[in-house]
Design a protein around this nucleic acid. Sequence first.
RNA 1: GCCGACGUAGCUCAGCUGGUAGAGCACUUCACUCGUAAUGAAGGGGUCCGCGGUUCGAAUCCGCGCGUCGGCUCCA
Length: 628
Amino acid sequence: MKVVLPDESQLELPDGATGLDAARAIGPKLAEQAVLVRADGRVQDLRLPLDDGQRIQLLTTRDKDDPDALAVLRHSSAHLVAEAVRRLYPGVKVAIGPPIENGFYYDFDFPEPIREEDLETIQAEVERELAEGREWSREEISRDEARKLFAAENEPYKIELVDTAEGDISLYTQGEFTDLCRGPHLQNSKPIKALKLTGLAGAYWRGDSTKPQLTRIYGTAFYDQKDLDGYLERLEEARKRDHRRLGNQLDLFHFDEHSPGSPLWHPKGMAIFNTLEDLRRRENAQRGYLEVKTPLIYDKALWETSGHWEKFRESMFLIPLEHDQVYGIKPMNCPGHMLLFGSALRSYRDLPIRYAEAAPLHRNELAGALHGLTRVRYVTQDDAHIFCTQEQIPAELDACIDYLRFLMGLFGLEPRAEFSTRPENKLGSDEEWDFSEGELQAALERNHMEYVVGAGEGSFYGPKIDLHITDVLGRSWQLGTIQLDRQMPARFGLTYMGADNAEHAVFVIHRALFGSFERFIGILIEHYGGAFPLWLAPVQVRILPVGEAHHDGAQTIALRLREAGYRVDVGEPTETIGKRIRTAEMEKIPFVVVYGDRESEESLAVRSRGGEQETLSLADFVTKLATL
RNA sequence: GCCGACGUAGCUCAGCUGGUAGAGCACUUCACUCGUAAUGAAGGGGUCCGCGGUUCGAAUCCGCGCGUCGGCUCCA
């Protein structure tokens, strides 16, 4: 048979030849360094046979940055960790250990809980294995044999995996450890030049909180020690951009233990918050939204009608009152907007009605889920509910997507779109979901939105178009969302009178484009590393009088700039000018104006963030600010 | 909520195996009146997260609670 190499040349091989055979046929050095073969674009273990006519690409230790090459290295590293753990902790049961972005993990069921300091012991054992060297061998066996093998090894998790695995069952063995594994794996452990265990965490078996909790050991590995060092440095750099750290440094917000998950916004953070709110209000008005305000608390009956009592109660703050009454603090605005819509007879001529409200919402998020501004209990969504006819759905969805793109474009953010379909705890029939999902998907296609499908990720009342973004530490967060809902208006008995003088069901599009101001600001802080563009910066210009004598002049300049609509403060001369400039730089203020004997309104010394200086008249400076 | 770690001055952190708390920055005062990333000196500031326990003695050891961090689950 023949295979095609990346340079288009053909390589003649005996039938049944493997990737490794192909490498040997090309050269011994290549065979030694090979870690993986890509056959017709799919990664494959070197030990597996190739097919006639396949285009193959051999990946070697020199492809040290290739994601597939790294994945195989890390997958094999995970197996080394499992071998080490089995040797060190007799009675431990192994579960699963895949490569992940930036590393790998392996889940174990330990007879006794282990602690973080145990990682050092395990790390040492893995290093011993690496020094000794390990070779991987692969074999395929029947399902029954696999069950027997793992029964004999007392590995119940492996047996469960055998039972649910698709396709042939393959085993990989290195040293004293044989694992059920699809592969691929390295030939041997020589390419693993750097391996570091990075963390310990609980993780439910199969990601199911009703199943036993296992102990997950995280690690990472590289083909080159330098790459590990670089990775750790990048983590450290990312940590500096963490919005929680910058929020404190830049005096934007803080959290207090008396209200976990609820930020206390400092004046500077509030300046950003308000800027976004102003943007929202202005743009909503342009786009035909109607601003409303609805109650923060409602009685239980309202939540029963909306379905929240059944589906969302655990995340709600409840207020017990006398006579067995219970009020719930709203976690969403939708029920209030339903009441608004239902407060009058609606004609088809009134639709669509777009109610907008950025009210504080409270969700009693699990304590362990809280995370700076990105996961809070006090959340402010830039919420709106569009009540429309079935025919109006496509145009309204298009308008939402356009709005979304406009907003994200302002920040240069490029979120990933996810189309989230019916969840397990859905309200409504499959037919209704078919329709709603169809509308959303069509809108995505029509607007050329690239998206992935999040099966079962939808809200309980409807499918969603979600926008996700990754924070500085690689964690994914949902920002905006557009959801199509026919359940809630139906539960509230909402209808409109059609041209046919008959009542029709009304549809609701729930949409939040920033998602929540809290999370969005958190993401913005990291996105800009705290160096906000002029229009978002809490302090846009700082005036620094050189000495006491320049106080009045500096105040006058500040006043003029404020009149022009900018956020300006004055750094009085209690410190040297050099110190005050340094402070302003650390606060990442976009412009600093030094005002001394040499300056006047006709000639200001303007320093841009970063150190660039120029001399401008006040009028020219205002003009310059306006263009940014 | 679950697993693991952590909680010392406003902030960042030091404080070995228990002997009664420290640095830098910030703050206050004084001197300096200053030109584009740190002037100098002095001073104030801590229920060592909370509650219990062990001990002659607890920031330090143990238990419980609260909070934070890394994950899991859940979610904007």
